[in-house]
């Protein structure tokens, strides 16, 4: 059974259709890069997979939980499908350590000591062991995003969703976040990332999905799809982003 299964998903914001029939499956361990112009529905699709957006029709099953069923336990799903946002979204009133610990205690019901030691391990993993007691506004964008990744990973999710997580960063800070992503990928995590980093998509992702006007326009192995696009839309998109 695939880990993620979308069948004919339709989503619109008011009268504006954003997703026009998305079907796709994602196997455990796959790393998928989702690319496309802004407004093509990439982020919306990712947010639907985490239940942050409700869909009008179609079926979404993630890790055995059918999100689109009435009364679906979205919180249980979200505890298993981690999400990292473009704008980091750390909790500004909590230290780095407490940002990571919060859901471990409230959702995973871990004791304070266990939550703290896991938080320390995860923060060390993203290279910020010396920032445990710092507050988000004392960190650079790249550091905040690494904490956000640690916060999601600490929940030991079966799937990680990354929504343009380097797009808000200064160029010199992108590298440190991508290196953390690579190390997560190496551990076999199932990942879906909306990204504009084509080199990263080519080198780290197994598969690339190109979205265009609310539909999946191309879907194939990362290297082949990016080096030999089959459609004119992907060709023109790639030439635009690669100059």
């Amino acid at each position: 059974m695939p880990l993620v299964d979308l069948a004919d998903v339709h989503k619109s914001f008011g009268a504006v259709p954003v997703l026009k029939g998305i079907s796709l499956t994602l196997e455990k361990g796959e790393i998928v890069a989702v690319i496309g112009r802004s407004g093509s529905g990439k982020s919306t699709m990712l947010r639907c997979i985490n239940g942050l957006e409700l869909v009008q029709s179609g079926r979404i099953v993630v890790d055995g939980i059918e999100l689109t069923a009435p009364g679906a336990d979205l919180n249980a799903l979200r505890a298993r499908a981690g999400m990292v946002f473009q704008s980091y979204n750390l909790f500004p009133h909590l230290s780095v350590e407490r940002n990571v610990m919060l859901a471990l205690k409230l959702v995973r019901k871990m004791s304070t000591e266990d939550a703290r030691s896991l938080a320390h391990a995860m923060v060390a993993k993203v290279g910020l062991a010396d920032k445990l007691s710092a507050f988000p506004d004392e960190l650079s964008g790249g550091q905040q995003q690494r904490v956000a990744i640690a916060r999601s990973l600490a929940m030991q999710p079966t799937l990680m969703l990354f929504d343009e997580i380097t797009s808000a960063l200064d160029p010199e800070l992108v590298g440190e976040v991508l290196r953390v992503l690579e190390s997560v990928a190496e551990e076999g995590m199932t990942m879906m990332l909306v990204t504009h980093e084509m080199n990263f998509a080519r080198n780290v992702a197994d598969r690339v999905i190109f979205m265009h006007e609310g539909r999946i326009h191309e879907d194939g192995p990362a290297r082949e799809t990016l080096s030999a696009p089959r459609t004119d839309e992907l060709k023109s998109f790639l030439s635009a982003v690669l100059h």
Binding site: A79, G82, V107
Partner: peptide, 13 residues
């Protein structure tokens, strides 16, 4: 509202 979303994405009720 992003703070609500961040909490939701971690499985908080």
């Amino acid at each position: 509202s992003r703070q609500w979303e961040a909490g939701a994405s971690l499985g908080l009720t």
